[in-house]
Simulated assay, not measured.
Amino acid sequence: MTDESAGPATDIFVAHRNLLFTVAYEILGSATDAEDVLQETWLRWVDVDLDQIHSRRAYLVRITTRQALNRLRTLQRRKEDYVGQWLPEPLLTAPDVAEDVLLAEGVSMALMVVLETLAPTERAVFVLHESFGFTHDEIADAVEKSPAAVRQIAHRARASVEARRPRKAASPAETRKVLAAFKLSIETGDVQALMDVLAPDVVVLADGGGIKQAVPNPVRGADKVARLFLGGLKKAGGALAAHHTTINGRPALLVTMDDQLDGVFAASVHDGRIAGIYYIRNPEKLSGVEAEIALARW
């Protein structure tokens, strides 16, 4: 690459960096791996003849998608040896992410967990089409399939996601209100107040990665979930506190133990109650909450 072309290539990459990170993150569910994918994308982008590129956005996303798919297959092998439940790495995001409905939905913890059930190519096709609006022809170039095959994959992936997708999420304001009630019930040890804020069929997924204690399997039902949290606090022994924040575009809680980050508490809220809880305690997955991460669809 010549010095004359290095400047424009860098400017174009930087202009699309937030988009590329978001694409990689939605495909992988890992901020750490998404950053690695961006490095690999850059190394390939600097060798491209810009004069031959019709759509620089589409071309960059194509490179990113291919690298993310390669990384996703490696990640899946790591998951086979993972201790306990595997949850996506949480991201500290700006509150205004919620203003872009498609972006907030695409990175929501609830949907990211559902995306884990898809095969790699299905996940990439779903993400590119549903979250970023790419056409089947554009996606075909990215996943190295024919447009007809991409249409079939997109239909299959959408049907699979819709069958598992949580009910329509509550507004940020309602979610924040419910989380505040949950936080207060935990702080006061009020069992009835906690039961009132939990949906009868609430499900808890927790990820400690074998490093920190976490329930190895999903916990279902308000009674069991209430006992889990109130009993766990009694055993903790330290000074636990929860702080309101925005994680993956939704209101959430940062949990600290003796003023040290202990984990991230994200939740899906429906009809004024918590229906799903995602508690990430694995310290290797918490780097994405140290500083706000910019996301974008364009």
Rank of each mutant, 00 (worst) to 15 (best):
E174Q: 12
V203N: 10
A173M: 06
A180W: 02
A157Y: 01
V197M: 08
G209W: 13
R176W: 00
E162T: 05
G210A: 11
L194R: 06
K212E: 15
S171Y: 02
P172W: 04
A206C: 12
F182Q: 11
R167Q: 11
T175A: 09
I186D: 08
A163E: 08
R167T: 06
D201Q: 09
L198P: 01
K177V: 07
G189R: 12
L194P: 01
Q192Y: 07
K212Q: 14
R158S: 07
L179S: 06
V161N: 03
P216T: 07
P216Q: 10
A159K: 04
R167D: 12
G210D: 12
A181N: 05
V191H: 11
D201G: 00
G189Q: 12
T188K: 15
I186L: 15
D207V: 03
P216A: 11
Q192D: 15
E187F: 07
R165Y: 01
Q192S: 11
A173C: 01
V178F: 01
L205Y: 15
S185W: 12
K168P: 11
L205F: 12
V215A: 14
P216F: 07
P216M: 09
D201S: 06
G210C: 10
V202W: 02
A180D: 07
E162F: 00
V178E: 04
L198D: 03
P166M: 10
V161L: 02
R158V: 04
G210K: 14
R167M: 08
E162W: 00
G208N: 12
V202D: 05
A173L: 07
R167Y: 05
Q192G: 02
I211W: 01
L205K: 15
K212P: 00
A193E: 14
D196V: 04
F182Y: 14
A173H: 04
K177F: 01
A169N: 03
A159L: 08
A169D: 12
A181M: 12
T188G: 13
